[in-house]
């Protein structure tokens, strides 16, 4: 653990008042709170901000930290500090990031008792505390979500790597959490182990887009298929099915395959009219013939500003 400049983390000058520290912390906490923030590294930032505030909000801890900070910035002024680190050995430094900070600078010598265990307020294991929950994101394919099934996962946990078996419920949707009871960190004393939570997200699919429990397939069709109607094979999450494109369909028309989405959702097929490439004179002539036949000017139907 390196020395952390808590003032820099809160973007405050070291002369900031207690009131300014509090105000800035509140603002940053709202900005980076993992339950609210959309920033990618919100959790880490929130932890850094909280750790800084834990120390700076308390006048005693802050004074101690200021002294330490002064020492790190100007080590020559404190010639005896390395040996005399007992000066930083007060109760105020226990149970906060300050303790780890001191340890990182002076090494794990006497005078910092209870730091690691003090984190949960449990010393000597006399209390029974439930283990921590662990959270992971689990990216799955739409096919897995549709069909459900078992999957074996290799997870890196604080207690080492482990392999767990997960049942993915049929029709699960994005953002749902799966709970694996008792698979989290071990408890202290008689306390039970924590749980693992797996938050479901969908991997990008080559064909489908997802909207809650509905899925959409964009289907390219030729002008004559749209005009004359056609029966085509389309892909669904459960395999291929036949779909009848009705005659006189327009671009963007949405057809529904009921119950072919996730869970109770549907699959929508959206038509995308694609013109053939016009490469030869004969290609051109074919479209000229269409032009003469229809005398069709869709622009005339468009609303114009008066």
């Amino acid at each position: 653990m390196d020395f952390k400049d808590y003032y820099k983390i809160l973007d405050l000058p070291p002369s900031a008042t207690q009131e300014e520290v509090k105000r800035t912390y509140k603002k940053l906490a709202r900005k980076y709170h993992p339950d609210v923030s959309e920033e990618a590294d919100a959790t880490a930032k929130f932890q850094a901000v909280s750790e800084a505030y834990e120390v700076l909000k308390n006048k005693d801890k802050r004074a101690e930290y200021d002294e330490l900070r002064e020492y790190v910035n100007n080590p020559n002024q404190f010639q005896n500090a390395g040996a005399g680190h007992g000066r930083f050995n007060s109760d105020a430094s226990a149970e906060s990031g300050l303790d780890d900070l001191l340890r990182s600078i002076f090494g794990d010598q006497g005078g910092f008792s209870g730091g690691a265990q003090g984190f949960n307020g449990q010393r000597g294991g006399t209390f029974n505390v439930r283990g921590q929950d662990i959270r992971y994101d689990l990216g799955i394919t739409l096919e897995e979500a549709y069909a459900g099934g078992k999957r074996s996962l290799r997870l890196t946990t604080p207690g080492g790597d482990k392999t767990i078996n997960v049942t993915i419920p049929k029709g699960v949707t994005q953002g749902k959490e799966l709970r694996l009871k008792g698979q989290g960190e071990l408890g202290h004393g008689e306390g039970p182990a924590g749980d693992i939570y797996l938050k479901i997200s969908f991997l990008k699919h080559p064909l489908f887009e997802v909207d809650e429990n509905d899925i959409t397939l964009v289907l390219p069709v030729s002008p004559w298929e749209a005009a004359l109607g056609e029966s085509v094979e389309v892909q669904t999450l459960g395999g291929k099915v036949n779909l009848k494109i009705p005659a006189d369909s327009q671009n963007g028309k949405r057809l529904r395959l009921k119950g072919r989405g996730l869970g109770s959702g549907d699959q929508f097929v959206m038509l995308k009219l694609v013109n053939p490439p016009i490469e030869t004179d004969a290609d051109k002539a074919a479209f000229e013939a269409l032009k003469d036949k229809f005398n069709f000017k869709p622009l005339d139907g468009m609303a114009r500003p008066v």
Partner: peptide, 11 residues
Amino acid sequence: QRAERMRQDLQ
């Protein structure tokens, strides 16, 4: 749990 974290962390 989210509600409780918000209550505590954001006062």
